[in-house]
């Protein structure tokens, strides 16, 4: 995270079906010196333009004409595991946001976030740093609670460590990484690692669930 090193501008793709909004985001990003390599108005366009554009970060609206943002996220991450997807959602529908994160999105912002918040979020996800809102942290906490309450869950399934739960709880209570680091007397980097591994476990659990679903339905036998 050496800020003094001159690095090439972040390559960003903006996917949103509202032209006004897409233009505003594009202008903000370009104005801040980021490289907007592609825009798309729907899922199909997004999937078609993604391979050639090779963005490092995708700023993605979840509610776009089919395929929706969740499917697009899953496909992007499948094609390029290094891509970072930052979800922007107007409605903040909990189920959708959680599904997008499970599909591989690494950040989430409500659309009313300010220009500065958006830029910070794009820069942070570009560095591989997950952008959690307190609301998203609450959802993820609830999801892990649900997993551990399910009686048939097997020991191989990913669980959060006590420390990870603690950190996630603090994120959900609105504490910044810096505040968390101070309170737990750990480094800022360690806090980031905990949050990152939480997301990783959630995505892994999603894959385990999908695989088990496939096996139960006999989809793997052909």
């Amino acid at each position: 995270m050496d800020q003094s090193e001159p690095s090439p501008p972040i390559r960003v793709m903006v996917v949103d079906d509202h032209p006004l909004w897409r233009d505003a985001v594009e202008r903000d990003l370009a104005g801040a010196g980021l490289d907007v390599v592609a825009v798309a108005a729907n899922g199909r366009e997004a999937l078609a333009r993604f391979p050639a554009a090779r963005p490092g970060v995708v700023v993605l609206d979840l509610q776009i004409p089919a395929p929706d943002g969740i499917a697009v996220t899953a496909e992007f991450v499948r094609q390029d595991p290094a891509v970072r997807v930052l979800v922007l959602s107007a409605s903040g529908e909990q189920a959708d946001v959680l599904a997008a994160v499970k599909a591989g999105a690494t950040g989430y912002l409500v659309k009313s976030a300010s220009r500065e918040e958006l830029l910070t979020a794009v820069r942070r996800v570009a560095q591989g740093d997950p952008v959690f809102t307190p609301g998203l942290a609450g959802l993820v906490l609830g999801e892990f609670q649900r997993i551990s309450d399910t009686p048939r869950s097997d020991p191989a399934e990913p669980r959060l460590t006590e420390r990870e739960t603690e950190v996630l709880k603090m994120v959900a209570k609105g504490m910044s990484y810096r505040q968390i680091a101070e309170r737990l007397v750990i480094s800022h980097r360690t806090v980031q690692n905990h949050v990152q591994s939480t997301l990783g476990k959630l995505q892994m659990h999603n894959r385990v669930e999908l695989t088990r679903y496939a096996i139960e339905r006999g989809l793997d036998t052909d």
Binding site: A24, V110, K111, S114
Partner: peptide, 16 residues
């Protein structure tokens, strides 16, 4: 949801 989303988009944009 579609209707709400449209309204929310505009509200968010105006706010921003």
């Amino acid at each position: 949801r579609v209707v709400h989303d449209g309204v929310l988009q505009v509200l968010a944009l105006v706010q921003r």
